[in-house]
Design a protein around this nucleic acid. Structure first.
Length: 254
DNA sequence: GTTGAGCGTT
């Protein structure tokens, strides 16, 4: 039914892929299908989602059967507000398998229709094809790197596949940008493997400044207070759960 | 519950 992209690419003999950007994170293919289908024959609608979380990335791919209809949808739906967000529809350039050309068949309406409609979107941004696209890729990481940093090194390779092979030095730089305070972590190899005893590891900085005084002053007293905050009227729900009730496990975990 | 430049799967 509306499970587009669930069974993989249906048939891309001469379908034109449109890239829909700036869509809401909760917009599904079902919402885009009737929207794009009204302007032409939509072969398939696919919305890439996260590998780990499974959430939408914020963009979708709409495949049209004809380029004229696709172009029309781009001109009509591009810049249209969907779900309260303005979406941007444009022809997909980067494909998993060079959809632009299929078996010698020219499937690139962008060149043919490029001069047809110049009104792209109310929000024209830099579209540098031969420009240094390294900075843009690095820049967009600041919003989704929170996931990338977890599986970096595995699935990340496939993402880099579509891009030109870059030196390994590049990825170090981009990740260093996030850890500005990590500039001095290199000469401290033992620091990476010395978090066993947080109570005696860093006597100088200790852990948290807020809970530090409580512990250093009277660790037992705090425990008692947390365990029995108000003897006269204790909460029936058990607010003693304020902090992790199992700190011993967390210590040896990481 | 968050995030908003960009390009895709069985």
């Amino acid at each position: 039914m509306s499970h587009f992209g669930r069974a993989g690419p249906p048939d891309i003999r001469d379908t034109y892929s449109l890239l829909v950007l700036n869509i809401t994170f909760r917009t599904t293919a079902d919402d885009l299908f009737p929207l794009f289908d009204k302007y032409g024959k939509v072969v398939d609608v696919f919305i890439p989602r996260d590998r780990r979380t499974g959430d939408s990335r914020g963009f979708a791919f709409v495949r049209y059967k004809y380029a004229d209809e696709a172009q029309k949808a781009v001109d009509k739906l591009d810049g249209r507000v969907v779900d309260g967000r303005e979406i941007m529809v444009q022809f997909a350039k980067y494909g998993p398998d060079a959809e632009r050309i299929h078996k010698g068949r020219i499937v690139e309406p962008v060149e043919k229709l490029k001069g047809r409609s110049r009104s792209r979107s109310p929000r024209p941004r830099y579209r540098d094809d031969h420009r240094d696209r390294d900075y843009r890729r690095r820049d967009r990481s600041r919003s989704r790197d929170r996931y990338d940093e977890r599986y970096r090194g595995r699935d990340r390779d496939r993402y880099r596949s579509r891009s030109r092979s870059r030196s390994p030095d590049y990825r170090r730089e981009r990740r260093r940008g996030r850890y500005d305070d990590d500039k001095g972590r290199s000469p401290s190899p033992n620091r990476s493997v010395s978090p066993p005893a947080r109570g005696s590891a860093s006597p100088r900085k200790s852990v948290s400044p807020r809970r530090s005084p409580s512990r250093s002053r009277s660790p037992v007293a705090r425990d008692e207070k947390e365990r029995s905050p108000t003897p006269k009227s204790v909460s029936p729900r058990g607010r003693s759960d304020s902090r992790s009730p199992s700190p011993q496990r967390s210590d040896a975990d990481e």
